[in-house]
């Protein structure tokens, strides 16, 4: 059976869903960040697969930008986690409620 872009889309959707489950179910903020990275990877798989289908490299250009944004997000997010852990000694998002009204 030939592999079509639909196969890649299904794989991407499944990977994205696993990321969504991780964000919603886990309480450790570091694991939640990793689940966000999984979701970004799912989007990248989709972009690359469809870029190959339409024989157009624009999709791959966008993957480069997604990776740049993911790197920036990881750096700033983990900096926030470190700063927060230094003050509150916790990585549990249920205890991170100082800004909750």
């Amino acid at each position: 059976m030939e592999i079509t872009p639909a196969h890649y889309t299904v794989l991407s959707a499944a990977l994205f869903t696993i990321g969504v489950i991780g964000v919603l179910v886990r309480r450790n903020i570091i694991i939640i960040f990793m689940a966000i990275e999984l979701m970004l990877n799912a989007v990248n798989i989709n972009l690359v697969a469809h870029a190959q289908q339409v024989e157009n490299l624009v999709g791959q250009v966008f993957v480069v930008f997604v990776i740049a944004v993911a790197a920036a997000e990881a750096a700033v997010g983990l900096g926030i986690i470190l700063a927060f852990y230094r003050n509150k000694e916790t990585v549990n998002i249920d205890e991170m409620n100082v800004m909750r009204w």
């Binding site: 890649y8 570091i30 960040f33 990793m34 990275e37 990877n41 990248n44 690359v48 697969a49 870029a51 190959q52 791959q60 993957v63 480069v64 990776i67 993911a70 790197a71 990881a74 750096a75 983990l78």
Partner: peptide
């Protein structure tokens, strides 16, 4: 998927950089 450059970037940035940060 014939995206060799992105494969290298994926290994360098994700597997090499971001994961070490995590």
């Amino acid at each position: 998927l014939e995206a060799e450059f992105l494969a290298v970037i994926q290994i360098l940035v994700y597997a090499g950089g971001i994961v070490v940060l995590y």
